[in-house]
Simulated scan of single mutants.
Amino acid sequence: MISAAIHGFILAFGLILPLGVQNVFVFNQGAMQPRWMLVLPVVLTASICDTLLISLAVFGVSAVVLGVDWIRVTLLLVGILFLLYMGFITWKSKPTTEETKGVAFTPRKQIAFAASVSLLNPHAIMDTIGVIGTSSLTYTGSEKIIFMIVCILVSWMWFFGLSLAGRFIGKLDRSGRFILYLNKISALIMWGTAFYLVFSL
C-alpha cells in the first residue's frame, strides 16, 4: 500500500507540474486577483474536474482491460511512450502566459474557463487515461483505491499551492525563469516514471 501511495504521489506530481494552459490560468489568477479568496472558484473547479477525470480513468480503464493481458500491456506501453514524449516536450518548452496575462476573471468566467481547459484539454485526458489510468493497472483492491486517492489529493494540493504561489511569486517573476525550472524538474520525473512502468511490465 505504501508503494502504491508513493507511486501515485510521484506520478501525479510529475504530470501536474508543467505549467500548461490550465495551470497558467490558476497561477495568473492568483497573481491578478486583488484578494486570494477571489481565486477559489478556479481552484475548486480545476480540482473537481481533475478528480472526475482521475476517477473515470482508474475505474474505466480497469473495467475495460480486466482479465485481458495483451490490452493491459499495450496500454502500459502507450503510457510509457507518452511519458517519454511529454517529458521531451516539457523539457524543451518555454514559459508563456499570454493566454491569460493580466486578466482578473469574474467567478463565473473563472469556473467556465477552468472547466473547459480541464475537461476539453487533450493533454489532460491523455495524462489521466493514458498515464494514470494505465499505471493503476498494476494495482488491485485497496492498493488501487489508495493510488487513486493520492493522485486526487496531489491535484487538490497543487492547485491550492499554485494559486498561492501566483499570489506571492507571480508579480515578481517577470522573466519566467521560475516556470522554466519547474518544467525541467517535471520532465525528469516523467522520464523516471516511464522507466518505473517499464520494470512493472
Rank of each mutant, 00 (worst) to 15 (best):
L162G: 00
G130A: 10
I132C: 07
S142K: 13
Y181N: 07
L19K: 04
A115W: 12
L162A: 06
F195E: 04
Y139V: 02
T90N: 11
C151H: 00
W36K: 11
A104K: 08
L56D: 04
A114L: 04
V42A: 15
I146E: 06
V73L: 13
N183Q: 11
F13A: 15
T90H: 02
K109F: 10
M190H: 01
T106N: 08
L76F: 04
N183S: 04
S175N: 09
D50R: 07
A165P: 00
V26P: 01
V58F: 07
T51Q: 11
T96E: 14
Q29W: 12
F59R: 02
P34R: 09
E143G: 05
C49S: 14
D69P: 01
T134A: 12
D127W: 02
A114K: 07
L75E: 01
C49T: 11
E99R: 06
F159R: 00
V103F: 15
V64A: 12
L17M: 15
V61L: 14
T140P: 03
I111F: 14
V26A: 08
V68I: 15
I80E: 06
Q33C: 07
P34M: 09
I179V: 07
K101A: 14
F159I: 07
C49G: 14
L197S: 03
R72E: 13
A57F: 02
Q22D: 14
A194N: 07
M126G: 13
S116A: 15
Q22W: 07
G102N: 13
G14V: 12
T97H: 03
Y85M: 14
A4L: 09
M1Y: 13
D127Y: 05
N121V: 06
I6N: 07
I146W: 08
W91H: 13
N121A: 09
Y196W: 14
E98C: 10
G30Y: 09
W156I: 10
T193M: 13
F25W: 06
L180I: 01
P18D: 09
S136C: 10
F13K: 05
D69C: 01
G161N: 05
W36P: 03
E99A: 15
T134Q: 06
R72L: 11
V103S: 05
D173R: 01
I48S: 11
V150E: 00
M32F: 15
A165K: 05
T128F: 00
L11M: 15
V65W: 03
A165W: 06
P41C: 08
T96K: 12
F147S: 00
F113H: 10
Y181D: 00
F178S: 08
V68G: 04
L83A: 04
G87S: 06
V43D: 01
V64S: 06
G130Y: 03
T138Q: 13
I145W: 06
G133S: 09
K144L: 14
R72A: 12
F160V: 13
D173W: 02
I146K: 03
M157G: 06
I125V: 14
R72N: 14
L52K: 02
T106P: 02
S135Y: 03
I89T: 13
R167I: 01
M32R: 07
V39T: 15
I80A: 10
L172S: 06
A4W: 05
P41K: 09
F199I: 13
D50L: 07
